[in-house]
Amino acid sequence: MRRTRSAVAAVALAGSLLVVPSTATAATTTAAPWCGITWGSTPKGTLPWTAASLTGVRAGQHDCYDRLVVDVRGSTVGFRVQYVSQVLRQGSGQPLALRGGASLDVTINAAGTSPALNSSEMVNVSGYQTLRQVAWGGSFEGQSTVGVGVRARLPMRAFVLTDGTTSRLVVDVAHRW
């Protein structure tokens, strides 16, 4: 009787070991991206040069990402958004200190002349899940830089919305991978 129970237990254990790995593999290969985000963390950008000017910067929180919006007076605007080891100030090339585990360099092909933009705390992002700091990196020869301190190097996307006379550069940074 003991031998029968031992044999049955051994067969059951062996069978369960064969089933568990295949179930775990199937679950991991069919899982959907978190919130459907498939953006990645590679540089984003477009090239247009215009006579646009920066008018403001603001931020917002969404369920799956934090958003930075750069308002521009002009119908089109070129930009480049990329993760860098250090954001550099326009004109001087000096490093811009940012809080967070990663730094996003947001360069906009638009002049920023308003004194209200010149701040190491352009937008209050305290309490945000991903954004840690938004700082002015200066404007020089028609290009402006905004440094964004981010919690970590997370997926991001960038795109421009326009209504004919004004544009908005939108930068979304996911809360997680």
Rank of each mutant, 00 (worst) to 15 (best):
G60W: 05
V69F: 06
W34Q: 10
S119H: 13
R2H: 07
S6V: 09
P115E: 09
Q82T: 13
T23L: 15
T55I: 10
L131W: 02
A152M: 12
A116L: 05
R176H: 14
A102D: 10
A9R: 03
R151L: 13
Q82L: 11
G74D: 01
V150T: 10
G60P: 00
S16W: 08
A14S: 06
T23M: 15
T130C: 07
A12K: 02
T46C: 12
W136G: 04
Y65S: 07
V123T: 02
S167D: 05
S103F: 10
G36W: 11
P21W: 11
S92I: 00
G127K: 01
F79C: 02
V11F: 15
Q86L: 09
A7Q: 15
D66F: 01
R89P: 00
R132E: 10
F79E: 00
G138Y: 06
W177M: 12
L68Q: 00
T162M: 09
T46L: 10
R151N: 15
R176K: 12
V20T: 07
T130Q: 03
Q82Y: 08
A27T: 01
G15A: 07
V150F: 08
A111N: 07
T46S: 15
G74C: 01
S103R: 10
A110F: 00
M122H: 02
L17P: 05
T30P: 09
W49E: 14
A110W: 00
S53K: 02
R153P: 13
W34Y: 12
G60L: 04
Q133I: 04
A26M: 08
R3D: 09
G56I: 00
A97D: 08
Y65Q: 04
R157E: 11
P21H: 07
A27L: 09
T4F: 06
T107G: 08
P43V: 13
E121L: 02
S6Q: 13
A26I: 05
Q94R: 10
G36Q: 11
T4S: 08
W177K: 14
L88Y: 14
W39L: 03
T166D: 15
R89Q: 00
C64Y: 01
G74S: 02
A174G: 05
W34V: 08
L154H: 12
V123P: 06
T50I: 08
T107K: 03
A12C: 10
F159V: 03
Q94S: 14
A111S: 12
L104A: 15
A14N: 06
L154F: 11
G93H: 04
W177A: 14
S41N: 15
W136I: 02
A7C: 15
A14F: 03
V148K: 03
Q143F: 02
G93T: 06
G137D: 11
A174Q: 03
V160A: 11
V123Q: 02
P115C: 04
G100N: 08
V77W: 04
L18C: 03
W177F: 13
G101H: 04
G137Q: 10
W34F: 12
G127Q: 00
P115D: 09
